[in-house]
Design a protein around this nucleic acid. Sequence first.
DNA 1: TTAATTGCAAAAACTTTGCAATCGG
DNA 2: CCGATTGCAAAGTTTTTGCAATTAA
Lengths: 157, 157
Amino acid sequence: MQLEELKNKFEQFLKQKGHKITRGRFGIIDKIASYGTHFEIEELVRWISNQDKSVASRSTVYRTVRLLQEFGAIREVIKLGNRTIYEFVAGKPHHEHLICVECGTIIEFYKEEIEELQDKVCEEHDFTPVNHRLEIFGLCSACKERRHENRGLEATA
Amino acid sequence: MQLEELKNKFEQFLKQKGHKITRGRFGIIDKIASYGTHFEIEELVRWISNQDKSVASRSTVYRTVRLLQEFGAIREVIKLGNRTIYEFVAGKPHHEHLICVECGTIIEFYKEEIEELQDKVCEEHDFTPVNHRLEIFGLCSACKERRHENRGLEATA
DNA sequence: TTAATTGCAAAAACTTTGCAATCGG
DNA sequence: CCGATTGCAAAGTTTTTGCAATTAA
């Protein structure tokens, strides 16, 4: 299974860094996997707290999220106002996001040409990219329609 | 002058929104303009506090930053860890950023083709973009060299 | 006059950390 | 056994907010 493979690799990562293989760290991975693709840390803490408090405490969640980021299993993909939304990458290919500012829907996309152009820009500036994030904020299809309906009502009010 | 024009427009904006033209709000604009292109709020608060405490308090800075964002004079351009870096836009043409994770240097760039491709992606998803942010994190030219030098020393140590 | 704005201090929200107890290797 | 990890509560950060005093219109 994909998840098991990820855990094995994380185990290697931990050993290599001189860290220990603990129940909590792997329990958190399971909870992240069962929560869905995108999450915020406090959301995750609540989720774990509801499901099984014994998995890990808030501090351990924060500490483990950091480790998983270093490892590369999760990424900060959306920064909106004071919120940080993480994504469980788990081997998924790289992609960017469209974020609906009305309903919070997140749409993933990948555009090879954009990636290539970024590399080109970096070269032009003798800059060595390590990672990047492209966020497009706007209105999704459904919210756009909803707005039009509302506008209609306002107009007749 | 560019700055005066911006202030005039901001005045219109405030009036239109039913807000008042206050000394503090315009003083903050001056301070932002004199600080430089990129800033963090707490930095700005300190800057104002050092220069002339009477301009505005921390709360007013936070509240005004929000207004200026709505107005469009400033943008959240970089989100790195828990830091938010704002940019004083002031009529500057749209652009994206390369951020050196080592020294914090910020390089601005603009790539028409990337913008076009983004629009294309949005169309494909029936998504109406309102704004976007592309951050490329990595190593600037100088830091790259510095790292190579260090590696050399380590190797001979 | 009177409604918006300000400064202050308190609270909120999010994240990190010191420390004693516990656990993994 | 020893050092890393955990949970807890306390402290740090950053941002927001209630309220009385002040100011703009």
